[in-house]
Design a binder for these strands. Structure first.
Lengths: 259, 259
DNA sequence: GACTATATGTGCGCATTGCGTACTGTTGTA
DNA sequence: TACAACAGTACGCAATGCGCACATATAGTC
């Protein structure tokens, strides 16, 4: 591995590697740490760090480098360009209000689902995910909807690369089990995942389709100690399907205008 | 201008420039457009674009390049590293619920405020800002709080660089007027901005202090057609100040443990 | 169909860029 | 005082990344 095509700009990869070296566990890093993390000499790491300070993406305090809020700009340009979250927001809000639960909208990126919009109910202290966060697709209701709707080949590739983990006692434990579940999800057009990622966490998701194009998945996370599975689907599913249709319709209108 | 220090990694700047060339007005770009936008030859732009496709940050369709959700990772690593939004969330939720309004938390970056957490009330179809979004600091309640608390020199530098705009009839129209307003804000410890950025939009903000360190600003946006200014401050201010204190306390506890 | 105009894809030679090594200085520890 | 581990800096060399130039493709115009 490691054979790069001849158009490859190595510095681009390194630049992003430097920015991504910072995370929750490593909020602040030294030159030596960064050099170790991305596999270059201290001198090289230092050049990148100082450059990024100069550009305003990092700040130094003594020998400790840390990210500045400016790094958010890169992702913000993506979110601003997406019509989907903007269009979806009022519908997610209405749904969250009607059901008194938290609603989310996700897209698929490789093996993960990625939150692009989320309305959390102020009355509940719900799980701490925010826009841009990733969760493993195979273990979530939205992920299963998105993967189930994938073309056969892509779905199999997903399954081949899936790294199952045993989060709770209820977590799906084999690829075959997961494949069967995906078939069910595809047939019924929704997915209910109960306590597979976290105890006391249930999520119901439906796809958001615009014609033949899959825009994303819509989710309602159901509070623990609430109604049982049967009434969840009976009560919530029609509302969610309608919301998905409304979002798709609005999206169609909005994107037709602007290119 | 343009004189760069000798440690400067030019490719890093170009890499980020390529990613930032995409925005709401330019969701998808061609090689030539990118080359023009960042000022390099087509061949160079193409190398960067193909590299970023290879790394998964962009995707091509014919000759149209667009961002993938992966660009959110860069900002997500910043948000994950910040303790403040996580700590603040439950307090913002409680406050939003109590007041039936939308609450936000911002930090200052140069001339802008930057949303790092936001709880929007599902019952209201509020203004479309999300985490990572920027607004001009001088025209917002949170911005005025954050700038007012800056040291004298930094505050004056902010004022020197401020580019005032006439958003509405009520917008502050001169630097001197703004300076006087900032003095008032600093004295009273809160800022109320009514309809200066947008008609029918009022925001009340207080600073979040931990000892002498300014962590950010907390805001409640007040619905149009609600109570008058006097009762806004009477009713809301005590709750907001308490929330700010609670956040700072929690923050102190959380950061003391880890590093 | 011929002629422009404007786009993308590609090969190549050369200068710049960015590389690591090696050195110095500083701090903290045994 | 010796030693280890860190940050900063200088420098020479090679790889990297540059733009030019040419081939090719797709429209629009007459």
């Amino acid at each position: 591995m490691g054979e790069q095509p001849d158009y490859f700009v190595k510095s681009a990869e390194k630049t992003l590697a430097v920015l991504l070296a910072f995370n929750a566990a490593h909020k602040s890093l030294t030159v030596t740490e960064v050099a170790g993390a991305i596999g270059v000499s201290r001198a090289a790491a230092r050049r990148f760090l100082l450059t990024l300070v100069d550009l305003g993406y990092l700040e130094v305090e003594g020998s400790a480098y840390r990210q500045t809020p400016r790094v958010l700009d890169i992702g913000a340009s993506y979110l601003a360009g997406l019509t989907l979250p903007q269009v979806a927001r009022p519908h997610l809000q209405a749904l969250a209000n009607r059901l008194s639960e938290t609603t989310s909208l996700c897209v698929l990126d490789d093996q993960d689902i990625l939150y692009v919009e989320r309305i959390s109910n102020p009355r509940l202290h719900s799980m701490t995910v925010s826009i841009g966060n990733r969760l493993p697709a195979w273990a979530t209701s939205m992920g299963r909807v998105l993967v189930a709707e994938l073309p056969e080949a892509a779905r199999e590739e997903f399954l081949n690369n899936a790294k199952l983990q045993h989060y709770t006692a209820k977590t799906v434990s084999s690829i075959d089990e997961l494949r069967a579940e995906l078939d069910t999800v595809r047939e019924q057009g929704w997915s209910l995942v109960a306590q597979e990622l976290d105890e006391g966490l249930r999520g119901l998701a439906v796809p958001v389709y615009r014609g033949a194009q899959l825009l994303g998945a819509l989710n309602v996370s159901v509070q623990p100690g609430r109604i049982g599975s049967a009434s969840i689907t009976d009560e919530m599913l029609p509302l969610m399907r309608q919301a998905a249709i409304d979002i798709a319709d609005d999206f169609g209108g909005r994107t037709a205008e602007q290119n």
